[in-house]
Design a protein around this nucleic acid. Structure first.
Length: 489
RNA sequence: GGUAUCAUGGCCGAGCGGUUAGGCAACGGUCUGCAAAACCGUGUACAGCGGUUCGAAUCCGCUUGAUACCUCCA
């Protein structure tokens, strides 16, 4: 483990050397989805980003416990105090049990993540399964004097907390600014200050998702689940906390406040935030109604899409940008990603067929070092990919006999490509239909034999007819120096 | 209004004071019966205006524009 990984910590606004609390082990918590709708392109960014973190840490030899929650209670819709639970609303509209909705969209979320080749987290806890832990946490905060009960609900006393700690340590906000700038919202009379946030909410009579507590029949506050579940599975202080930038405030800020009161320390050492995916320069979001679901991408059914885009294209598209930069959706960009990915993956097949030379004209060791440098520098996947394309150039040049590599370098390059492309970037070949299909294999050999004969006789009409006909069946035939190759598009 | 981030060639997207990012597209060439693929070559990017410096896309200031958060959202 001689690699030194640097990560950008939102807490310090700098890149910091990553040193885990317990040597050789990493605890990572990432805010997962609220399951009340299909996963859209926006959801894929944190999933892929932290999948990359997970994969790379494992590659470096760490034993990683990766916890990603599923939020199935507690998020209020619209106005904070007047709204109803998102899950409950959807359930009532469709006359389903809330848990039925949760199950349905969880399954669909998992399905989309599987397609994107996102590894499953070690633990995927649900908020509804941790009500007791959350109630205990509310009690602890009340006992410590940092919360107050009001009409059956319990609110976190931000002003009091801020006297001894700093509310705003993560987001850079200053409490006075919040006070003077918070908008007027209806029904906030229960709170002492507008910036106080609920840690327990009394349920309205029509509210279906409710649990008994010392204060009221109700449900836990919005930010509490992550504090409770991360502490339960990763300890009172753990290594990495991740999520989308949009969660920075108030969600993560409030998590820090709650956990600090309960455990007297900042819950996580490194706070990582991925940037947003935008569409026409604007954030893709549920509430903005400008999102495209992942299934729509895979099927090409959304009106903004010129064609279908495969899961690996989406994954590669995301990895081509650094996780902290905004990434703008466009058909052009997706198609560029699609072609680039195809070229990258094709080179692996070419690589497997190369024969060794007596000398090496390229420095594979140096290439490998550059790949690690890129990843160690705050997971700079675009630089990594640029380096891999340098590898592609080398592979193709060797194939064209313009360069050569020794067996040692060839093996090193194969190992390099397998490690970075499959294990770390998590890409995978998508069309392996031709593999193992003996019928197609046999037919193709037969057809290409006829064509080879025609070509030998300079019967271009016949040979082109065969090639065109196969092209119509989405089989492309290419005549190379080393013979004929074909593949399914 | 407050806080934060950003503005790079046709498109996407790296860059953290001096050396080629990379992908896609385009053009020219090599190869090929023709294609395709591949390889080689080509683009005088850095929002604007000042400043610091021997030297700035990169640091500082101002201007303009954009986005995010401040309310659920990845």
């Amino acid at each position: 483990m001689e690699n030194t990984l640097f990560l950008y910590n939102t807490l310090s606004r700098t890149k910091e050397k990553f040193v885990p609390i317990h040597e050789g082990h990493v605890g990572m918590y990432v805010c997962g989805p609220t399951v009340y709708g299909d996963a859209h392109l926006g959801h894929s960014r944190p999933a892929v980003t932290f999948d990359l973190v997970f994969r790379y840490l494992k590659h470096l030899g760490f034993k990683v416990r990766y916890v990603r929650n599923i939020t199935d209670v507690g998020h209020l819709e619209n106005d904070a105090d007047e709204g109803e639970d998102k899950i409950a609303k959807k359930a009532r509209l469709e006359e389903l049990e809330p848990m039925e909705v949760v199950q349905y969209f969880s399954d669909r979320y998992h399905n989309s993540m599987d397609k994107l080749n996102v590894l499953k987290p070690s633990i995927e806890p649900r908020a509804s399964g941790h009500i007791i832990e959350q109630i205990q946490m509310v009690q602890t905060i009340l006992d410590a004097g940092f919360a107050y009960e009001s009409n059956g609900s319990v609110y976190f006393d931000v002003e009091k907390y801020n006297k001894e700690n700093r509310y705003g340590i993560l987001s850079g906000r200053i409490l006075e600014d919040l006070l003077s700038n918070t908008r007027e919202l209806e029904g906030q009379d229960e709170k002492r200050n507008s910036f106080d946030f609920a840690i327990w909410k009394k349920a309205q009579p029509e509210h279906i998702m409710r649990w008994p507590s010392p204060w009221s029949d109700g449900f836990p506050g919005w930010h509490l689940e992550c504090s409770a579940m991360s502490a339960k599975y990763l300890g009172e202080q753990f290594d990495i906390h991740g999520g989308g930038m949009d969660l920075l405030f108030p969600h993560h800020e409030s998590e820090i406040a709650q956990s600090t009161v309960c455990h007297h320390q900042t819950p996580a050492r490194y706070w990582l935030h991925n940037n947003m995916i935008t569409i026409n320069g604007q954030k893709m979001g549920k509430s903005l109604g400008n999102f495209i679901t992942l299934d729509e991408f895979f099927a090409g059914t959304h009106k903004a899409l010129e064609k279908a885009y495969s899961p690996m294209t989406i994954r590669f598209f995301i990895l081509m940008a650094h996780y902290r930069s905004p990434l703008d959706f466009s058909n052009e960009a997706l198609q560029a990603a699609e072609k680039g990915l195809s070229r990258l993956l094709k080179s692996i097949v070419t690589l497997s067929k190369l024969s060794a030379g007596s000398t090496s004209t390229s420095n594979i060791t140096e290439l490998e070092e550059k790949c690690y440098e890129a990843m160690n520098d705050d997971l700079n996947s675009p630089i990594l990919i640029a380096n891999l394309f340098e590898g592609v150039r080398i592979i193709n040049s060797v194939n064209d006999q313009k360069e050569s590599l020794t067996q040692v370098d060839l093996d090193k390059l194969k190992n390099l490509f397998n490690t970075f492309i499959f294990d770390i970037l998590g890409l995978m070949p998508e069309s392996d239909q031709q593999a193992g299909n003996e019928v197609i294999e046999g037919l193709m050999n037969l057809v290409l034999e006829f064509r080879a004969n025609a070509r030998a006789n300079k019967d271009w009409t016949t040979s082109d007819k065969i090639r065109d006909a196969l092209a119509g069946l989405k089989i492309s035939v290419k005549d190379t120096k080393n013979g004929v190759t074909w593949n399914l598009d």
